[in-house]
Amino acid sequence: MSDIKTLIIAELEKIIAAKGEACPDIVGETRFLQDLPMDSLDLATLLVTLELETGKDPFRDGFKGFQTLNELSALYQAA
């Protein structure tokens, strides 16, 4: 598994644990808002954290759509 995927999963687990929710198994095709106990603010928190951790902001020039762990990882790998 790539470093960025490992980082995203670790941050997701922290965010979900902070809400007191159980975190299901996360795989590449896991959809953030449909398959995990997350809302849009949780997703925003994830992206802010990833920017700080990686120094990359794939959305600097405008928002790019993504739904799954694989899709978000690809955006960071391309940034």
Partner: peptide, 8 residues
Amino acid sequence: LRMMLRQN
């Protein structure tokens, strides 16, 4: 808000 969301 970016700070506050992270701080939770």
